[in-house]
């Protein structure tokens, strides 16, 4: 039973750690499927986390904080959109720039406004997301096997956690079953054809970029309003890049994204749990190896040794109308 408890605890923290990855990777899915590469996921998440932490601390309302996160993240997305769609600049360069600008700004503004070494004040009560218990969680708690799974693993998460998992099928439906989704995928594969059909490539790509901003806003708000009680300097700590890796690992497909994020979340949870504890049969695994594993796996996948990851064909190329 002890082993079972450990597994439940491990899976529970897997879910907790993979939520921001799911939001961010789905965010990347929308822009990259529309042909706009985005390595600024990290920066948008960080900016959103800061906005959420700062605004929730000042107003005392978690939902105003969430709105602020989405607003900032969408604004940053529009900067990326302006540079890469309207100005036809390099999408990679623009993403890199946004990551730096946001990292520096959150530290400087956080320190100037709150004077807590780059943190925002600790949140409590209404300023923070509370966990939700699913119905009957208490009642079934003592049922063997199913009880702990339902009560400890599936119940007792944040609203945003359930939203993240709900967004997986929703994104699938939007991308594969709506007109908008069809056009969005087409603009990432062959923008010329979309343009010929009389649909604005520019406006479609902007909409995709805005979707990305909204989802990154959720990812950031989850970090500072749900998982932690406030913003901490550089709190994304590379999660945006892991999400990017998950997006590629999932070959730009919604359901695969969820699985990839759960896998990377699991590796993270395992690394935390294994710190100092030797693994049976294998012995002591260096923590650093566990931390590097998502990146190593992505490189191996990209190299085409586990299937082949084929990016959207027009990804990274600004669209120039024929004259």
């Amino acid at each position: 039973m002890d082993f079972f408890q450990t597994i439940i605890a491990l899976l529970e923290s897997t879910i907790r750690l993979s939520v921001p990855l799911i939001f961010a990777a789905l965010a990347g899915l929308y822009t990259e499927r529309a042909g706009v590469f985005d390595i600024g996921l990290e920066g948008k998440m960080l900016g959103a986390a800061f906005a959420a932490g700062a605004v929730a601390a000042v107003t005392g309302s978690v939902f105003i904080g969430l709105l602020a996160a989405i607003l900032i993240s969408v604004l940053l997305s529009l900067v990326h959109g302006y540079a890469s769609i309207t100005q036809r600049g390099s999408q990679i360069v623009s993403g890199v720039a946004i990551n730096f600008i946001v990292f520096g700004s959150t530290v400087i503004l956080g320190e100037a406004w709150f004077r807590q070494g780059g943190r925002t004040p600790a949140l409590s009560g209404d300023a923070r997301f509370q966990t939700w218990d699913l119905p009957f969680a208490d009642a079934v708690k003592d049922v063997p096997f199913i009880g702990p799974i339902y009560a400890n693993l599936l119940s007792g998460h944040f609203l945003l956690t359930y939203l993240a998992f709900a967004l997986v099928p929703i994104s699938w439906w939007v991308l594969y079953r709506t007109r908008f989704g069809l056009r969005l995928r087409a603009v990432g594969e062959n923008p010329g054809a979309v343009d010929t059909a009389g649909i604005s490539v520019i406006w479609l790509r902007y909409r995709a970029v805005i979707c990305c901003g909204i989802l990154c806003g959720f990812a950031g708000a989850y970090l500072s309003l749900a998982m932690n009680a406030g913003f901490v300097k550089g709190m994304t700590a590379g999660k945006g890049y892991i999400a990017l890796a998950a997006l590629i690992f999932a070959k730009w497909r919604p359901v695969n994204i969820m699985l990839a994020c759960l896998l990377f979340g699991f590796l993270d949870a395992l690394a935390i749990r294994l710190q100092g504890n030797p693994l049976p049969l294998i012995g002591q695994v260096p923590v650093q190896l566990m931390q590097a594993l998502p990146y190593i796996l992505t490189v191996i996948l990209l190299a085409g040794f586990i299937g082949k990851a084929i990016p959207p064909k027009a990804g990274g190329i600004p669209y120039v109308k024929e004259r």
């Binding site: 900067v79 540079a83 890469s84 100005q87 036809r88 600049g89 390099s90 999408q91 360069v93 623009s94 890199v96 720039a97 946004i98 990551n99 730096f100 600008i101 946001v102 990292f103 520096g104 700004s105 530290v107 400087i108 320190e111 100037a112």
Partner: peptide, 25 residues
């Protein structure tokens, strides 16, 4: 004291944005 060295990171990002991604603006 209000301006830490992270100000450089902002400037660096802005230079990358304006000299790189928005070079044609």
């Amino acid at each position: 004291p209000a301006i830490s060295r992270d100000m450089i990171v902002i400037i660096q990002g802005l230079v990358i944005l304006f000299a790189g991604a928005l070079e044609n603006m």
